[in-house]
């Protein structure tokens, strides 16, 4: 498969990233419904580490926590010659130099360059806590979620940690953060398929086209799910048919769904009849991804 990493193609894991340019389109609802419907081994990874919400709807039992840290520099004062090279090369302004370097972990991206360029080998690294992984399950559905520590700005590092929890088999569903910035890119990267959840409004269409730009740059196969659908002949339908983008499923605009969501009740409980639709969509997604991989 063109998009999978080596280790993934070895196992038979299939990763679907559920994303949406716009917030509030029902991305988490769809990700959870897919996980609950799928009959193979399935795992849900919540990569929306700034606002992890999947647990509110899935209500998994958490079996364990894992602490995530990243390396940050510290100084062996005895070896430091005060040359200032470390501060000069830091691209993130994370080293203040006043006779000796002062490291600011809040600004550090853990690139390790200061340690490597220090002529006196006076810089070493120590771990800094950035967040916690919660690992659990709801029935047969495996669940991993990352929660970023307050005040930590480096979501991508934690997202990478969530994605490393991937099992090497079955179906993997990623609940991505909204927007199109780098935490979104980190979440969808190397997935086998991106499912874009949108709503048939002007805003929904516009934000979806922004997400599509990024996904095309990443060369990932993708398709669209329309949530809160009123008519088959809406702006999303027209856009998809003119751009030849597969429109995989429509979830009807139904007040009972919105009301259930407001109370934290998942879609499968309110509309079990949608299960068939979800299963067909998962099959369609696999077929498209395989065809894409064969190119």
């Amino acid at each position: 498969m063109s998009t999978g990493t080596g280790s993934k193609t070895a196992g038979k894991i299939f990763t679907v990233a559920v994303a949406s340019g716009k917030g509030g389109t029902g991305k988490t609802t769809v990700a959870i419904s897919m996980a609950l419907c799928a009959e193979t081994d399935v795992q849900l990874l919540d990569c929306d580490v700034e606002e992890p919400n999947a647990h509110i709807l899935l209500k998994p039992s958490i079996q364990g926590n894992e602490h995530v840290s990243m390396p940050v520099p510290f100084l062996d004062e005895a070896k430091c010659t005060g040359c200032g090279k470390c501060s000069g090369i830091c691209a993130f302004n994370a080293i203040v130099f006043l006779k000796k370097p002062l490291f600011l972990p809040d600004l550090c991206h853990s690139c390790g360059l200061c340690m490597k360029v220090c002529p006196g080998k006076a810089i070493m690294e120590k771990p800094r806590h950035i967040g916690i992984l919660e690992i659990g399950a709801k029935g047969d559905v495996g669940f991993v979620s990352g929660c970023l520590d307050i005040g930590i700005a480096s979501s991508p590092a934690l997202i990478r940690a969530v994605r490393k929890q991937s099992k090497n088999a079955g179906l993997e569903i990623i609940d991505c953060p909204p927007g199109t910035a780098c935490s979104f890119v980190t979440s969808v990267k190397d997935s086998d398929f991106v499912l874009l959840v949108t709503e048939p409004t002007r805003f929904g269409l516009h934000d979806m086209t922004l997400a599509i730009k990024v996904i095309k740059q990443l060369k990932l196969p993708f398709g669209v799910l329309v949530n809160k659908s009123i008519s088959d002949d809406d702006c999303i339908g027209k856009y998809c048919s003119s751009e030849k983008i597969p429109l995989l499923m429509r979830i009807p605009d139904d007040r009972s769904i919105a009301e259930a969501y407001s109370r934290g009740v998942d879609l499968m409980e309110v509309k079990p009849e949608l299960k068939d639709g979800f299963l067909k969509m998962i099959d369609a997604v696999r077929a498209i991804a395989e065809e894409d991989g064969g190119k």
């Binding site: 993130f92 302004n93 994370a94 203040v96 130099f97 006043l98 600011l104 809040d106 600004l107």
Partner: peptide, 30 residues
């Protein structure tokens, strides 16, 4: 124009200039 860390580097520069007082509108925590 720095992507980040403007405050601390500006602080370092005024410290090198050996000032004892800074007067400004807002000063961030770092």
């Amino acid at each position: 124009n720095a992507p980040q860390g403007a405050g601390v580097q500006a602080a370092a520069n005024v410290l090198i200039a050996e000032v004892k007082v800074v007067i400004t509108g807002h000063c961030g925590p770092k």
